[in-house]
Simulated scan of single mutants.
Amino acid sequence: MAKILFMSNVGLIIEERPADIGNFLVGRLLPFRGKRMVGPYIFIDHMGPVSLSEGENMDVAPHPHIGLSTLTYLFEGSIMHRDSLGTEMEIHPGAVNWMTAGKGIVHSERTPQRFRDLKKTIHGLQIWVALPKEMEDSEPTFHHVDQIDLPYWKDGDVSFRLIAGEAFGRKSAVPTYSKQFFLEIHSSSQQKLTIGHELFGEAGMYILEGSIESDGYVYEPKQILVAKEATLCEFTINANTTVYIFGGEPFPEERFIYWNFVATSNERIERAKEKWLNQEFDPVPGETDFVPLPKDKVRPASTSERKE
C-alpha cells in the first residue's frame, strides 16, 4: 500500500509486496501502480534474506531480457551468473554484475556448485535500468565490477559508496548509458544529511536497515520513499542505518514492460515474445532448461498506466 504525503518532500511511499520468482518470495518495490519508474529505474526486487538448507538452492533457469540493464548487488551469499555471451561469473557481496540486454540476451542465476550441499543465505537487490531508446538494438554486454573498484568515501560517521552512475563529483566504474545514480549511505550515528544539490532528475530512497526522519515523520525498512524534488533531498539518518538512493533523468518516451522485456513499443515486446516462444534467442552454453513465457500475462503494461 502506498501513502502520499503533501507536507514534506516525500511525495510517495512504496512498501514491499511479496512476489514469487519460483524458488522463493521476494519483496517487489518497482514497478508500482502509482509510480512505475524513478528516473531510468524500472524494476527493483529486495531478495531475501532467505536461508536455504543443504540441497536447497537458487536455480533461476535461462530466461531472456531486452531493452534494459540488470544490476545485481548482494549483501549476503553468492550467485553464479551464466549468459548467452558465454559469461560465467560468480558475484559476491559488495560487487556489481551489470548485464546490458540491448536487442536480447539470455542468462541463468544459480547457487555456485561448491555451496549446493551446504546451508547458505541469499540477500540482495535485483534491479533493472531501462535503456535509452537509441540503445534498444545494441549488442548485449556484461560487466563485473569488484567492490574495491566502486567509489567509496567517508564524512565523519557517514560512509558513501557510489554503486552506479554519477554523484558527488565521482563516477562509478559500472558502464551506465543514461544520467543516473545509485548510492549506498550508511551511518553509525544520527546525522542530518543534505544531499539534494548532488542529485538530479527523480530520486527514490530504499531503507535497508535502521530508520530515517524527514519533516517529523519516521520511516523504517522495506519502503521506497520517492522525493517530490530530488534537489531538496534532506533528512536525518539515524544510528546504524543503511539506505540506497537511486534515480536520475527520466526518459522522454514511456516504457512498456512485459515479464522480462522492457521496450518503447508493444511491437518490440511482441517480437521478443515470439522469439522466445520459438527459442530463437542465443542459448546459455551448457544449459538446456529454460523459463517458459508466462501464460497469465495478456499484454504489456505501459509506464504511463496506473494499473499494476
Rank of each mutant, 00 (worst) to 15 (best):
A2E: 11
K3Q: 08
F6S: 15
G11E: 14
L12T: 05
L12S: 08
R17Y: 05
G22L: 09
G27A: 07
L30P: 01
P31Q: 13
F32E: 10
K35H: 09
V38P: 00
P40F: 11
I42V: 15
I44Y: 07
H46Y: 14
G48Y: 09
S51M: 06
S53R: 13
E56Q: 13
D59T: 15
P62E: 10
H65F: 11
L71K: 04
L71G: 08
L74R: 00
L74P: 02
H81Q: 11
D83K: 05
G86Y: 11
G86Q: 10
E88L: 05
E90A: 09
H92S: 06
A95M: 07
N97M: 06
W98K: 10
W98A: 09
M99D: 05
M99N: 04
T100A: 03
A101P: 12
G102W: 01
V106T: 13
V106Y: 03
S108D: 12
R110G: 06
P112A: 07
P112S: 03
G124A: 07
L125I: 10
L125T: 06
Q126S: 01
E134W: 10
M135D: 15
S138L: 05
S138R: 12
E139T: 09
E139H: 10
E139R: 12
P140K: 09
V145M: 02
Q147K: 15
Q147P: 00
I148N: 12
D149Q: 13
L150Q: 06
K154I: 14
D155M: 08
D157T: 15
L162T: 14
A164T: 02
G165V: 01
E166A: 10
E166H: 11
A167M: 14
F168D: 00
A173L: 14
V174S: 04
V174G: 03
P175R: 01
S178F: 06
F182T: 04
F182M: 14
F182G: 05
E184R: 10
Q190L: 08
L193D: 04
T194I: 08
I195S: 03
E198I: 08
E198D: 12
F200P: 00
E202R: 03
E202F: 01
L208Q: 11
G210R: 12
G210C: 12
I212L: 08
E213P: 00
S214I: 15
D215A: 15
G216L: 01
Y217D: 07
Q223T: 11
Q223W: 02
A227Y: 06
A227P: 00
T231I: 07
C233G: 00
Y244C: 00
Y244R: 00
F246W: 09
G248F: 08
P250Q: 09
R255D: 07
I257M: 15
Y258A: 13
Y258E: 07
F261Q: 05
R268K: 15
I269L: 12
K273V: 15
K275E: 14
W276M: 03
N278W: 00
E280N: 08
D282W: 08
D282P: 02
P283W: 14
P285C: 08
D296C: 02
D296M: 06
E305G: 09
